[in-house]
Amino acid sequence: MTSLSRSDTSAPSPRRPFAKRLLDGLSPSRLAVPVFLLSWSFLVLAPLVVIVLFSFLQVKAYRVVYVPTLDTWVSLIDSGRWMTAVRTLRIGLTMTVIELLLAFPFALWLAKGCKSKTFKSVIITLLTIPFFLDASSRIIVWRSILGTNGAINTALMSLGITDSPIDWLLYSEFAVHFGLLGTHFPTMVFPIFMSIALIDDDYIQASQDLGAGPAQTLFNIILPMALPGIVAGIVFTLVPLMAAFVEPQLLGGGFVDLLGNSVNSALQQLKYPTAAALSTVVVALLGLCLVVLILVTRKRHDMASMFMAIRR
């Protein structure tokens, strides 16, 4: 009797379905790591490698010639398109800094200052508009406002503030910066907002209690504890900025060409190797920026322990 019951418990039930046993045997990391690596390399990494390789090929009479050549890269440098890369990097970094300076105080207020829950959710909803409204339709409106016959110039002239229309408002670097501002604001605000909202009010109060003024609390407590969010905000803002093409196209008027535009026009002219080379430049610049970012933040703070600290 006893031996029977013992064998019952020790031997696994033979009727358990095979699929179920297989699933039970899989731990999350054993499943997640291979699935992620496989799908990510198929979806993202492989096309990236193809793009880089493609930039060393040529298209002749609408057919790809599979002979490695540096022609595309040479023409890229000769035609002065490297200036575009520099400009893209400059505008991308400037805009990231501007967005950070605007978004941090805003996120701080939204997370800690705004007491009304309704108001907070309304603002968060409003911030998602750039995600669901098409960029071209949002941006094109600015032409009729910033243009020489636009609303601002008409208003300024009828008020007698200026005699002639201000022409740098549209089709200029100013206009491109202005157009990029709204599109990339939410991607900077959201991560910073999340990380500041996660900071327990007790830390801020403890800081005050120990004698730190508002500015000291901001720089000693809030800023370092919000660093993961700030880094995420920079990444999520800088990356799309490097590939922006709608705003420079519609508001730059051909004077402010960015890499995104160049890729776009190259594709339209069916110059695939040129598009591939330009995309490679974008990816390389981004990689460079991210490496610098990681080095700078790691010098000051250990990110892994930062997240552990937030989790408490």
């Binding site: 007790d202 109060q205 004698g211 504890m225």
Partner: peptide, 13 residues
């Protein structure tokens, strides 16, 4: 005056 908080509120970073 300073406070010893109930949950200590030690700065984790």
């Amino acid at each position: 005056c300073t406070t010893v908080f109930q949950n200590y509120a030690l700065f984790p970073h």
